[in-house]
């Protein structure tokens, strides 16, 4: 079927089987391999993308569900070479090890910060609990998200 949607702020029209998984569509048809697959069953969160601004698991979505939506993948999180503040914080705080969970984790953190203005550490832990990381023990990820939130608060105050 033909579907059209907004992908990383770009209009896109595709002819794909309606039951093609979104994660395959992104990775294989559109070469956006920043979105990872870790389980294919909605358990790990590595394939998290933003659909209409909300975090969604692309391994559990089918192509037809994208019709008319705005989709953001890790590649489109910030324009050009610029980094999103969450990405900058992940680098600075050492929240990246093997990095395979990172794109999904960053997207989940962006969504968390959108929903929750000033999350404390337990709230960050809850907000990211759908994304598994096997390398970090999560601490530096929490540090990065907390710092992003703090800096954003300061930015608003000034």
């Amino acid at each position: 079927m033909k579907i059209s949607f907004l992908l990383n702020n770009r209009e896109i029209e595709l002819d794909v089987p309606s039951d093609r998984r979104v994660v395959d569509l992104l990775r294989e048809d559109l070469a956006l391999t920043g979105t990872k697959e870790g389980c294919g069953a909605g358990e790990c969160g590595a394939c998290t993308i933003l659909v209409n601004g909300k975090s969604r698991l692309s391994c559990l979505m089918l192509a037809a569900q994208l019709e008319g939506c705005s989709v953001t993948t890790i590649e489109g999180l910030s324009p050009g070479d610029a980094l999103h503040p969450v990405q900058e914080a992940f680098i600075e705080h050492g929240a990246v090890q093997c990095g395979f969970c990172t794109p999904g984790m960053v997207i989940a953190a962006v969504d968390l910060l959108r929903r929750t203005p000033d999350p404390d550490r337990p709230a960050i832990r809850r907000g990211l609990s759908g994304n598994l990381c096997r390398c970090t023990g999560y601490q530096k990820i929490i540090d990065a998200v907390e710092d992003t939130s703090r800096r954003r608060g300061k930015g608003k105050a000034s």
């Binding site: 990775r27 391999t33 990872k36 993948t73 890790i74 590649e75 990405q87 680098i91 050492g94 990095g99």
Partner: peptide, 23 residues
Amino acid sequence: KATPRADARGKVTGAEKYAADYY
């Protein structure tokens, strides 16, 4: 010196290619 890892940028932007990303 505590230095951010050189590989972090490519991983945080999704640009780094793992074996899983080769087609």
